[in-house]
C-alpha cells in the first residue's frame, strides 16, 4: 500500500494524518492542563502584602523627616495605658522616595526639617503587610491636606513629642545581623515578588530613587525589619546598592522606632556579602 503524502495547501489532509493529529491533540490538551497545574503549584507562596492601588485614603499623625520620611500614627493604648504608635514610612509614587515631597510640605508650612515635625493629615495609598505599613504620597506635595491640632491623648504623651533626630545615642546597642536588603515599598505590597533575585533590579531602582533601604532578618517564625541609616545621619542608599537582594551581614547600632528598628551603620565598614 502506498504511503500517504501530506500537502498543506490541499483542502484536506490525508486520513492517516487526520487520525494522528486527533490523537496528538488529545495528548496535547492533557499536557497543557497538566503543565498549567504543575507550573502553578511549583511556584512558592505569593506575598500577602496589600497595595491599595487606585484607592487613596487619609492618614493623620506626626509628619517627620528623620531618619526616613514617615508619619508617626497613634495606634492604640498599651497594657499600661501608654500610647502605642506606628511609624508609617512615606514613599513617592512609582519608584521614588518621599524626601523631596516632605521637604516641600515642610517648606509650605514654614516648618524646620530638623524639628520634631508637625501633626497633619495626608492623602495617599496604603501599603501594608506583616504588621508594617507604608503610605505612598501618590499626588506628590498635594498629598498634604491640612495641619491638625494635636489630639489631647497625644499632646499629653511625652513620647510623641520626643525628637527623633537626636544624633548619637549611647543607648543604641551594637549588633551584627544577617539578612537581605529590600525596598520596603515593593516588599510590603507593591510587587509580587518584592524580594529575591527576580526583584533585585527593581529594588535597586527603588532604593536609588529614594525609598529607604530595609534589612529583613528572618527567623523560622518571624521577620524583623531594620531601616538602614547612616551613623552620620545621612542616607546610605547610594552606598548599599551592590548588596541589595543578596544574603548580607551588617553590623551597626540599633534602636526602636515604634514598630520598626533603625540600624545606624557606616556603609564602608558595616556590610559584607555572605
Amino acid at each position: 500500500m502506498e504511503k500517504e503524502f501530506y500537502i498543506g495547501y490541499l483542502p484536506e489532509a490525508p486520513a492517516a494524518h487526520k487520525k494522528w493529529v486527533k490523537k496528538f491533540l488529545g495528548i496535547l490538551i492533557i499536557a497543557i492542563l497538566l503543565l498549567a497545574g504543575l507550573l502553578t503549584f511549583g511556584q512558592g507562596m505569593i506575598s500577602k502584602g496589600i497595595f491599595n492601588f487606585g484607592k487613596t485614603s487619609e492618614l493623620e499623625g506626626y509628619l517627620r523627616m528623620y531618619p526616613v520620611p514617615h508619619l508617626k500614627v497613634y495606634n492604640d493604648k498599651g497594657i499600661y495605658g501608654e500610647n502605642l504608635y506606628k511609624t508609617v514610612i512615606l514613599t513617592g509614587a512609582f519608584k521614588f522616595g518621599a524626601e523631596e515631597i516632605v521637604k516641600e510640605i515642610f517648606e509650605k508650612n514654614n516648618k524646620d526639617l530638623n524639628d520634631t515635625g508637625f501633626y497633619c493629615q495626608l492623602n495617599g495609598t496604603l501599603i501594608y503587610n506583616d504588621g508594617k505599613a507604608l503610605f505612598e504620597l501618590t499626588d506628590g506635595a498635594d498629598a498634604y491636606l491640612k495641619t491638625l491640632d494635636i489630639p489631647d491623648n497625644i499632646l499629653n504623651d511625652t513620647l510623641s513629642n520626643q525628637a527623633m533626630i537626636d544624633g548619637f545615642n549611647p543607648y543604641r546597642l551594637e549588633t551584627t545581623l544577617k539578612g537581605e536588603i529590600i525596598d520596603p515599598k515593593c516588599y510590603f505590597g507593591a510587587m509580587k515578588p518584592g524580594s529575591g533575585k527576580v526583584h533585585k533590579s527593581c529594588a535597586i531602582r527603588c532604593i536609588s530613587g529614594g525609598i529607604p533601604p530595609v534589612l529583613k532578618v528572618s527567623s523560622e517564625s518571624t521577620n524583623q525589619y531594620y531601616i538602614l541609616f547612616g551613623e552620620d545621619k545621612k542616607s546610605v542608599s547610594s552606598d548599599i546598592l551592590d548588596y541589595i537582594a543578596e544574603p548580607v551581614e551588617i553590623t551597626g547600632r540599633f534602636e526602636a522606632l515604634d514598630d520598626w528598628f533603625v540600624l545606624y551603620i557606616d556603609p564602608e565598614k558595616a556590610i559584607r556579602k555572605l
Binding site: 512609582f94 519608584k95 533575585k197 533590579s201 535597586i204 527603588c206 536609588s208
Partner: peptide
C-alpha cells in the same frame, strides 16, 4: 514592572541596575 517608573530609562536600567556580570548566581538574568 521591574525597571519602569524609576530614576533611570527602563532599557538603561535593564543593563545597569544589576551589574553582577561576573557572577553566575547573581548574573542579571533579564
Amino acid at each position: 514592572q521591574y525597571h519602569g517608573g524609576g530614576n533611570e530609562n527602563p532599557i538603561v536600567s535593564l543593563f545597569t541596575s544589576n551589574m553582577d556580570y561576573f557572577s553566575f548566581v547573581e548574573f542579571p538574568f533579564m
